[in-house]
Simulated scan of single mutants.
Amino acid sequence: MSRLVIFTDLDGTLLDHHTYSAEPARPAWEAAQAAGVPCIFNTSKTRVEVEQLQEKLGLHEPFIVENGAAVWFPGDTDLPLPPDARPTDDLYCKLLSIPRTEILEALNPLRGRFRFRSLSDMAVNELMERTGLERQQAILALQREFSEPLVWMDSEDALKECIEALGALNLRLVRGGRFHHVIGAGDKGQAMSWLLAVYQKAFGGAITSVALGDSENDLNMLAAADVPFLVRSPVHAPPTIPDRPDVCITSHCGPEGWAEAVTSVLEQAGIRHP
């Protein structure tokens, strides 16, 4: 196997759906880190959420936020940055979507046609109740820059109409573990492919991309990966990935399933736990 790069969803995949703990996966990500295998977060979470999580887990890698909307690089990265990467708060940002303000403007006319509640309508306490996040984590989750989560309160037929209406505005509506997310034209798969090209340039050799996710908003990332893993969820059935009969579905849920998948890939590459 060529050099590995791991891309992973967070909520429901590396993080437990209910507790948001990643501890069962710690031995696997530490083994990857010790072997020099990058572990890239590709998530619907915000920049500030991911920064805090990386610090907690002892990781220092680029990361993709808000369902593929932007790629953030550490300020001291050795990777070749694109000319349009902009410095922000000791990080560099490659924007792949549009600002949240434009998304909110596009949603305003749709509020009369469809029944939904957006994140911008919610106070911290409501978000805590809906997600189980602690207060500080909920505050970070509200600090979105490039997307808008929705609680869909209308019918499935209305959802299809809303998707068409947003598509006419070059926006997408994707289903996550708890919310539907309105984002720009990009997705997790396109962001992963873009960042893989950066690693290809840096490594100068063949790369095997591994992707792990659990929800519909992960499908583009999983479909674009060399080695896709669907991590089982305790709250919904594994979604179908079209034209990828090789997808592996873990036996366990959440971080236990994540560890199961990553351990198998590392062992195949001759990397074992310390």
Results as ranks from 00 to 15, higher is better:
Gly36Ala: 14
Trp152Arg: 04
Ala168Met: 10
Gly184Glu: 00
Glu267Gln: 14
Thr263Leu: 11
Pro274Asp: 12
Val265Gly: 03
Arg47Ala: 09
Gly257Cys: 02
Ala138Gly: 06
Glu156Met: 12
Arg130Tyr: 07
Met221Thr: 05
Cys39Asp: 01
Thr250Ala: 14
Arg175Ala: 14
Lys160Gln: 14
His181Cys: 02
Gly132Lys: 01
Pro38Asp: 08
Leu166Ala: 05
Gln52Lys: 15
Met221Glu: 08
Ala185Lys: 00
Pro239Tyr: 06
Arg100Cys: 06
Ser264Thr: 11
Leu95Phe: 10
Leu140Arg: 07
Glu156Thr: 12
Asp154Met: 09
Gly184Tyr: 00
Gly189Gln: 05
Glu129Val: 02
Gly132Trp: 01
Ile241Ala: 08
Asn42Lys: 04
Arg232Trp: 06
Val227Tyr: 01
Gln137Cys: 10
Asn108Ala: 12
Asp214Tyr: 02
Pro149Thr: 01
Lys56Leu: 13
Ala202Leu: 14
Val174Gly: 04
Val227Trp: 02
Ala191Tyr: 03
Gln143Pro: 01
Ala237Gln: 15
Met192Phe: 06
Leu222Pro: 01
Pro82Tyr: 09
Gly186Cys: 05
Leu15Ser: 00
His252Ser: 11
Phe7Thr: 04
Leu159Thr: 05
Gly176Asp: 07
Pro234Gly: 10
Pro82Met: 07
Arg175Gln: 11
Arg86Leu: 15
Ile249Tyr: 09
Pro109Arg: 02
Asp76His: 14
Met153Pro: 01
Asn125Pro: 08
Arg130Ile: 04
Gln136Val: 13
Ile40Met: 07
Thr101Met: 14
Val48Asn: 03
Leu219Pro: 04
Leu140His: 05
Leu96Lys: 02
Phe229Cys: 08
Asp157Asn: 15
Ser44Thr: 13
Leu119Thr: 00
Asp84Gly: 06
Glu23His: 14
Leu150Ser: 04
Pro99Lys: 01
Phe63Pro: 00
Gly112Ala: 07
Ala158Cys: 12
Leu104Ile: 09
Gly167Asp: 12
Leu196Trp: 08
Pro24Ala: 12
Ile64Leu: 06
Leu110Thr: 02
Leu266Trp: 03
Ile64Asp: 02
Gln136Ala: 15
Thr8Ala: 05
Ser120Phe: 00
Asp16Glu: 10
His60Arg: 15
Trp258Thr: 02
Met1Glu: 08
Leu266Pro: 01
Gly68Met: 03
